[in-house]
Design a protein around this nucleic acid. Structure first.
Lengths: 242, 242
DNA sequence: ACCTGAACACCGTTCAAGT
DNA sequence: ACCTGAACACCGTTCAAGT
């Protein structure tokens, strides 16, 4: 048993290994598959090649580097992100946030890739930039304030969700959970009264006190409040300028 | 010339290589040094060992794993984050955001580590959790809404800044800059009018259109607007509940 | 044009051995 | 207790070679 250690023809699920007929699209979609099924740790040129039944170096014919592959993956995952144009600006931005979160929820292991090393490749939809700017103009922003509002929206969209779905590397052995539960069990209620009073409803449902990420423990309430508060704040700022 | 390939005693800057006298603190502070000076790519067990003039495996006596080392680094960088307790809640949260950004600005290469794989080690200051909860109670939040508001604040604090200082890997050859400039130069003003009208003030100063990160191209306006809008929105939500 | 195959210069981590 | 030293099982990437 164990692993087949010989170089025998090993057939694989989905598209077979055998005689190779790759393309840029196949490489990218296989990469996303691996990302979804096996996580970020297993995401790499060599594992993608293995899944496709080819040598690692075959990948380089279709994709110039790991970095470029990541950029492609991000582009595919975030395709069709922009909400319909006819929505009022506040609803449009809310929809943008929700749609972004839906995309990440489908491919949560991509969150660190997008969030932390956002490759600003030009392919990232001019439609997203245009749409956001147009809606913020509609809201009354212009000049420097428009730039600021744009950055607040894009940064705000990516930021929260990236945290929510940040990987917490399985934790099968409870090495993440146990210290949290222990420290909660031993809270000094005189020094940390608010924490003590709310510990039960915070545990595994709040940043810094969770051992699962958004996949198994979504922060729906936090996301809603966050998005609505940010948009309401933008609206107030816009009103003040007019 | 080239590199000294013999196992001769090589002395190094700062604390010498020689006869080793490590500690957990020295390992962690050296790790931060390397992170700051040489970037995230050069951040690893082996490079830290090299800087200290010891074998890679010597590190493992003081730190159990790379993951745990990262957790230590984060803890040091975010030490003393919590603002003074006497501030009104809105100012307190603003101060928290500003202080967090200052910490990251000093160690920008740590942003991806914190943002994307926030290791929720219990050592992350109960003071931060307690302070945030206390101020949000002060604002009028309780129960489920308190949990949501807490997550909005923490997620909001980490999220924007992580994006702002996300690494854009040097770009000495202009491979990031050039495509952006090219796509801006060829905007179809009929399809993307808002983008065309504001291109000049957006270039390298806005998400998706920049090739430098917050270190050389800070998004001050965006951060201010973002933080103020979020806090104003929280205040409005709190008022509605009372 | 597209893939094989060997090789290079790296990783983090384990384990036995030295002192 | 603390570090050396060899070794293991990996990486991404380059380059020559096959077909």
């Amino acid at each position: 048993m164990a692993k087949a250690s010989r170089p025998s023809k090993k057939r694989r699920a989905g598209r077979g290994a055998s005689s190779a007929n790759l393309s840029r699209e196949i490489v990218v979609s296989t990469a996303i598959d691996i990302l979804d099924r096996e996580g970020l740790d297993s995401f790499g040129i060599r594992s993608i090649a293995k899944a496709l039944g080819v040598f690692p170096t075959a990948i380089y014919w279709h994709v110039p580097s790991r970095h470029a592959l990541i950029a492609e993956v991000i582009t595919v995952i975030l395709a069709d992100l922009v909400p319909p144009r006819d929505l009022p600006w506040e609803e449009w931005i809310k929809a943008l946030f929700v749609r972004y979160r839906e995309r990440i929820r489908k491919h949560p292991n991509a969150a660190p890739l997008i969030g932390a090393q956002l490759v600003s490749n030009a392919s990232v939809d001019a439609a997203l930039i245009e749409g956001t700017l147009a809606k913020l103009c509609e809201a009354g922003f212009s000049g420097e304030a428009l730039v600021a509002a744009y950055n607040a929206v894009i940064g705000g969209m990516v930021g929260f969700v990236t945290q929510e779905f940040a990987l917490v590397s399985s934790d099968k052995d409870g090495s993440l959970r146990d210290p949290i539960l222990r420290s909660i069990a031993t809270i000094d209620a005189s020094r940390h009264p608010s924490l003590a009073a709310n510990a039960a409803q915070l545990v595994n449902r709040a940043y810094l006190l969770r051992w699962e990420n958004g996949v198994s423990a979504a922060l729906d309430g936090g996301f809603e409040l966050y998005a609505d508060a940010l948009i309401a704040g933008l609206a107030a700022t816009a009103r003040r300028r007019n």
